[in-house]
């Protein structure tokens, strides 16, 4: 076997991003094979990973994980540069924008639930804009907006609750004394 000439030096953070992205890719593919009553209505469980990373490691890592996940999953599913990929990317970019703004909300009043809902709404807004401008340039798309918004609200709340639970457990686990206290 010839030795690789290119040697990419990686940092511990790179490895960490890679691990978290792998988790997000797994969830993305799991979701891709899940049947859906209406194309586009999906639970968005990969958002849990993005939110968790945002809380635990900051926005930059969350953006890396989210965007790498979109690219890597589309390559694995054979959807790279297809409409599905573009929708996925626009959704991810829009929800990252929403999270970038929402992360500054006071933590005392706003938890992962708020961030999850806002990210879900931004995600669907990003996708609907692409659908309207490029895929289905027809006003009939407007009929789908309420359904998508309702789905975004429901799954946003559920994903937010899950993120909070995971985040709390993670912190309790890290902080052994607190873990013993409970």
């Amino acid at each position: 076997m010839t030795r690789s000439i290119i040697n990419i030096s990686t940092t511990a953070e790179d490895h960490h991003i890679a691990k978290l992205t792998a988790l997000a890719i797994g969830l993305h593919i799991l979701e891709a094979i899940m049947p859906s009553p209406l194309p586009g209505v999906k639970p968005g469980i990969t958002n849990i990973v993005t939110l968790f990373v945002l809380y635990e490691y900051g926005f930059a890592t969350a953006a890396w994980v989210s965007l790498l996940r979109v690219f890597a999953s589309s390559l694995l599913l054979g959807q790279f540069l297809s409409p599905t990929f573009v929708l996925s990317l626009s959704g991810a970019v829009f929800s990252l924008c929403a999270l970038y703004v929402a992360q500054h909300l006071p933590k005392k009043y706003f938890s992962a639930i708020t961030l999850s809902i806002l990210a879900a709404f931004a995600h669907i807004a990003g996708q609907l804009i692409i659908v309207r401008l490029w895929l289905i340039p027809h006003t009939g798309v407007a009929y789908l907006i309420p359904i998508f918004a309702l789905a975004a609200l429901i799954f946003g709340v559920i994903n937010g609750l899950i993120t909070r639970k995971i985040s709390t457990n993670n912190r309790l686990f890290k902080n052994k004394s607190l873990y013993d206290a409970i």
């Binding site: 006071p106 005392k108 009043y109 706003f110 639930i113 708020t114 809902i117 937010g160």
Partner: peptide, 10 residues
Amino acid sequence: NKPLAGDQLV
């Protein structure tokens, strides 16, 4: 794990 005041508002 309960929704906070802001969450409820949102």
